[in-house]
Amino acid sequence: MIITALIILMGVTMVVSAVFALHTKNLLMAVIAVGILSLFSSIIYLIMQAPDVAMTEAAIGAGLSTVIFLYALRRTTDRDVDDD
């Protein structure tokens, strides 16, 4: 029960951070939000008895992917963007 509640809590956070990532004007924040989303998903994988996937998601999806995004950000713009 607690686990379900935890999952739902994380799920809400994830969806919220996804929406936040899409709507924030700050790309850096957006990237970090998606990184957090990934990290949370890896926790869910752990709960779902998928340790291999959880490790992969944490290391590649949340970790390296975020770094790559950050590098890309650094090389494209250093100001906030306007997005409609």
Partner: peptide
């Protein structure tokens, strides 16, 4: 360690490789 033990415990080449890459980061 992660990829050498991939057949015994969670983890393996992809995770290990990624960890090595994070060291480089």
């Amino acid at each position: 360690y992660i990829f050498v033990n991939g057949h015994l415990s969670p983890g393996g080449g992809f995770q290990g490789g990624a960890v090595i890459a994070s060291a480089i980061v």
